[in-house]
Simulated scan of single mutants.
Amino acid sequence: METKTKRQALIKTINQQLELAYDDTLQEILELLKIRKQEDEEDERDFEEGLKDIAENGTLTWEEHKQKIA
């Protein structure tokens, strides 16, 4: 519950600041949020591909990995 309350307070503070921001600042914020969303989506795809690779090829032990990179 505390986290939700902190989140709500943070959102309220951000909204207050957004009301005072210049249009170009708002555009920059929007672009940053879009970039963050794209990065999150890429991370999710990479994670799913990693799981698929593990299912198809298995994994290496730490010793096998050390030998492979040596």
Rank of each mutant, 00 (worst) to 15 (best):
E2H: 07
T3F: 15
K4V: 11
K4L: 14
T5Y: 03
T5E: 09
T5A: 13
K6W: 05
K6F: 01
R7T: 14
A9V: 02
I11Q: 06
I11H: 02
K12G: 04
T13K: 15
T13P: 02
I14N: 03
I14Y: 11
N15D: 00
N15F: 09
N15L: 07
Q16N: 10
Q16V: 09
Q17V: 01
Q17N: 06
E19T: 08
L20D: 09
L20Y: 04
L20C: 01
A21Q: 09
A21V: 03
A21N: 05
Y22A: 07
D23E: 13
D24E: 07
D24G: 01
D24H: 07
T25L: 09
Q27P: 03
E28D: 10
E28W: 07
I29D: 07
I29E: 12
L32P: 02
L33V: 06
L33M: 14
L33W: 09
L33K: 12
K34H: 10
K34S: 11
K34C: 10
R36E: 12
K37V: 06
K37E: 09
K37H: 13
K37T: 09
K37I: 08
K37P: 01
Q38V: 08
E39K: 04
D40E: 13
D40V: 07
D40Q: 14
E41G: 01
E42G: 01
D43H: 10
D43F: 11
E44L: 09
R45S: 03
D46F: 13
D46A: 13
D46N: 13
F47C: 05
F47N: 08
E48H: 12
E48Y: 11
G50V: 01
G50W: 04
L51R: 05
D53Y: 04
D53H: 07
I54G: 05
I54N: 04
I54W: 03
A55R: 04
A55G: 00
A55P: 00
E56T: 03
E56V: 02
N57K: 07
N57R: 06
G58C: 00
T59F: 12
T59C: 07
T59S: 10
L60K: 10
T61K: 05
T61A: 04
T61C: 03
W62T: 03
E63M: 03
H65A: 14
H65E: 08
K66S: 10
K66D: 11
Q67P: 00
A70S: 12
A70T: 02
